[in-house]
Amino acid sequence: MKLSFLLLLLPLLSHAVKIKDISSIIGVRDNQLIGYGLIVGLNKTGDGTTSKFTLQTISNMLQSMNVKLDPKDIKSKNVAAVVVTATLPPFSRQGDKIDVIVSSIGDAKSIEGGTLLMTPLKGVDGRIYALAQGSVTIGGRNGRGAGSLNHATAGRIPGGALVEQEVPFNLYGQKEATLSLKESNFQNAVTIQNILNRFYKEHVAVAVDSRTIRLKKPEKLSMVEFLAGIGEVSIDYSAKQRIVIDERTGTVVSGVDIEVEPVMITHGDITIKIEERESLPAIGKEGTAQNMGQNIQIRAQQHAVITKPGAATVANLARSLKKLGATPKDIISILEAMKNAGAIHADLKII
């Protein structure tokens, strides 16, 4: 695993963003749909006789077409049972088309080239909101094409479902709405409240908590016009500093100015010591390397890193450890230990 250390060059503490990019309107949301169906037309790559639910489903389907057949008599391997999922966007109307994903739940080897038979898609309330049907696309040979799912037992049907029932939501007739911030922050909530009240020159917003702002539209505007205008208003957005670590790829993303407090950590044969000092020791002999721009010394023979708090940032520390020869796993473990010890105050997110 190769380490990739990325630095966010833009300031993370405060920058201008539009309100629509950091919030959502409560009630305006996607809805998840799910269904169970059959894919036919497979070239002997479908479910075998061990998937008894597939055979029973085939029998039930044929019976609805006045063809009575015992499941035990079905030997076809050209059919696969699948779970069908889709996302119903807000304000979808009857006749709109939405994409669906089909995933095998039996022992099928591949569903490539198959056709999904008409499958009802239900919401969490058990009501049917869409009907799915169509040819399955894997997205490339053996399902490994660009942007595709990475195996042949799952695929997509672009525009494969027709919306049959709408989710009722009368936004136009509303006089009030609620704005929900994507990240909890009291300062951002108050900032949005104040700037909206100044922008509209009346009391249209009130911050209820660190994520919620209640809105009351002006009399001269419709709710749609009001929300459209709010979304385009820019604010001075305060974002939390964050370190993102991808354990699978070894990628670490950090702001350039995230500091590390004085701390001493030993990890295997690597010792990290960050302390208050008036001046740094002189550079040693062979086997000692120094990052002059960051005031970080690396003693390869002793496996030690000594630095000053003023220059001890996550970015500099990671670069120094990499130069020392630490593995990506070591660097990730050290950052996690520093966070747990309270030496790093930024949020640590592992994906």
Rank of each mutant, 00 (worst) to 15 (best):
K2C: 12
L6K: 03
I19K: 03
I19F: 06
K20A: 13
D21V: 01
I22W: 08
R29T: 09
R29C: 04
N31H: 15
I34E: 14
Y36G: 07
G37A: 07
G37V: 00
L38I: 12
V40C: 06
G48F: 09
G48S: 15
T50G: 04
T57A: 15
T57M: 13
S64T: 15
S64V: 12
K68D: 04
P71C: 12
P71E: 10
K72Q: 15
D73K: 15
D73F: 12
K75T: 15
T87M: 11
P90K: 07
R93H: 10
R93F: 04
K97Q: 12
I101Y: 02
S103D: 00
S104I: 05
I105R: 11
I105F: 04
A108G: 05
K109M: 04
I111H: 02
P120A: 05
L131W: 12
S135I: 11
T137C: 08
G140E: 10
G147P: 02
G147L: 01
G155H: 07
G159I: 09
G159P: 06
G159C: 05
G160N: 10
Y172W: 09
K175Y: 12
E176L: 05
L179T: 05
Q187S: 08
N194T: 10
L196D: 00
N197G: 03
R198M: 04
K201R: 13
K201W: 03
E202Q: 15
D209T: 10
D209Y: 12
D209R: 03
S210L: 04
R211L: 02
K216P: 02
K216G: 06
E225W: 05
L227A: 04
E232D: 14
E232T: 11
V233H: 01
S238D: 10
S238Y: 14
R242I: 14
R242G: 06
V244T: 14
D246T: 04
E247I: 12
T249A: 15
T251S: 11
V252T: 07
D257N: 13
V260H: 09
E261T: 06
H267P: 00
K273A: 05
S279V: 15
E286M: 13
E286Y: 08
T288F: 11
Q294D: 12
N295F: 06
I296C: 02
I296F: 05
H303Q: 15
T307K: 02
P309Y: 03
P309G: 06
G310C: 01
A312C: 11
T313H: 01
T313M: 00
L324Y: 08
G325S: 02
P328T: 09
K329R: 13
S333P: 03
I334F: 06
M338C: 00
G342T: 06
A343H: 00
H345S: 07
A346L: 02
D347M: 03
L348C: 03
I351Q: 12
